[in-house]
Computed example of a mutant assay.
Amino acid sequence: MPTQHNRSRSESLESNSLQPESEKSVVPIRSELLDLPSRKHIPTLSPKQEGKHIWFRHDTTGKITKQILKMLKSDLPKPYPTYRSLPQEIKNRWFRAFAQEFNWDSNITEYVRTNYAKQADLSFRSNLREWKKLWKHRGPENLPEWMKAKKSLFDGYIKMWTDEKAVKTAAKNSKNRSSDRGGLGIAIHNNGAKTYERRWDEMTTELGKEPNMIYFMEETHLNKKTRIITDMKTKKILEIAKSKLELTNSHCQTEGDNSTQPKAATQEDINSIMLEVVPKVKGGRYGFGKFLNEECSSSTSTPRHIPDLREEIQILKKHELEKNAQIKYLMECNKLLFEQFPQLRPPEHPSTPSIDEDEMQA
């Protein structure tokens, strides 16, 4: 049951944080409301994940995906096939509701919005697949009560799922997922529903340092019961990487190391070889997704799960262009206003206070 404090926080954000809503425009969150003292106790988002701060694909609490699921269950008026197909007004409501339950530095609002959209898109597709599985396994009469309560919505989804074209597309996608990958068999990993980023964070906590890439790939593909890697493509990659590593170590000993003990490979050595061996797939790396820092050189090849700075720069540039367009529009409005009412006079531009030489030296 929401407390009076939570209700007042939500009402404040709902009534004051947004400009009049447009069906096509993204509605901004006002920065001063994100900085309200009453919001300090709610979960805080930060790409750097300092202290208890969380971030989207690194969220170990599950709070972000649960909040998106709540919006899926409560604010989905029609059977839309994807998050991207939602009208902008619904996306605005979802993000507004998200802002009621999470806080962040107002300077990164656009970055939060972009990452929220990515997470919402993934969660939407994932939950829709689960709903379809429930319907196929249980039948329409044995669905959970909350699904039965939304009969018109799920009637629409069932119609979509049984559509001949959709059935063919689903069969094609299923066949692609079941591909033997050139004789290497169907892809198998044992990461569960956890993202690669989240699993990397967990291993870093367990080990007290970042895992090397061989260890990470082994752990995410080992069968939990047999401790055997059954995915043939992964086995092949690891065998090649370990073979290259042994060859590199033997060369190091031949070139002047008189020690009888083989020199232990450093994390940098291991990751450098793995970056050579692990293929790129759909903009990411096989077995690692997209969280590796593609800008790292082979000499400093440590995986990074820091935010993509290029993406953040693009967001800031877009935000700057939007601000410039607004300023230009306001200036045109002012010009027309002064032409219509010449007796009006704009206020004097504030002068910049001068700094004495003594103050500068101080």
Rank of each mutant, 00 (worst) to 15 (best):
A99L: 01
L45V: 08
T65D: 10
L245P: 12
A187P: 09
E276T: 11
K63P: 00
R84N: 10
L45Q: 03
K236Y: 07
L245D: 07
K194S: 14
L18R: 15
I240Y: 00
F124H: 05
S15C: 09
M1S: 08
L36H: 00
K52R: 09
R129A: 09
G256P: 15
T352N: 12
N107E: 12
N223H: 15
I327Q: 12
D59P: 01
K244T: 02
W55A: 11
K66D: 14
I313Q: 07
K63T: 05
I229E: 14
N293K: 12
S17W: 00
K63V: 07
S250W: 08
P144M: 06
S259K: 05
K63Y: 00
R310M: 08
I229L: 07
W135S: 10
A362E: 14
A170Y: 03
T169H: 05
W146N: 10
E239K: 12
R129G: 04
K280M: 11
W161P: 01
I355H: 00
P346M: 06
L18E: 10
T302F: 07
P28F: 03
I158R: 15
I64L: 14
H221G: 03
T234M: 15
C296P: 03
L33T: 03
T220S: 13
G183N: 08
A241E: 04
R39E: 08
R227N: 11
S243T: 12
K168G: 10
G289T: 06
K132F: 02
E202A: 10
E141I: 04
P87H: 04
K225P: 02
S250P: 02
T226M: 06
N191D: 07
P81K: 15
T226C: 04
Y286D: 14
I228F: 09
M232A: 11
S126K: 06
I158G: 04
D121M: 00
N115C: 10
H319R: 07
Q19A: 03
S297H: 11
L245K: 01
E295T: 11
N191A: 07
L18P: 00
T162H: 08
Q100Y: 04
M331P: 06
K242V: 01
S126Y: 05
L207Q: 09
S297E: 13
W146C: 01
I68A: 02
H349P: 01
V27H: 13
L72I: 06
K63C: 05
Q100E: 14
M217P: 07
L76G: 01
R138G: 00
R9E: 07
E359R: 09
I237H: 09
G256S: 04
Q67I: 02
H221K: 12
M360I: 13
R39K: 09
Q361G: 01
E320D: 11
R30Q: 15
L316W: 01
K48W: 00
E359T: 13
A166W: 13
L309V: 10
E197C: 08
A97I: 05
D231F: 15
P43D: 11
A241P: 00
L13A: 03
M232S: 05
R198N: 13
P353A: 09
Q267M: 15
E294F: 15
I270W: 04
E14N: 13
R125A: 14
A325C: 06
Y83S: 01
T109S: 14
E101P: 00
A187Y: 15
H349G: 04
K70F: 02
L222R: 12
K48V: 03
M360W: 10
N92V: 02
K280A: 06
D257V: 09
R304L: 12
T226H: 06
K209S: 13
F341W: 09
Q343C: 11
A187M: 08
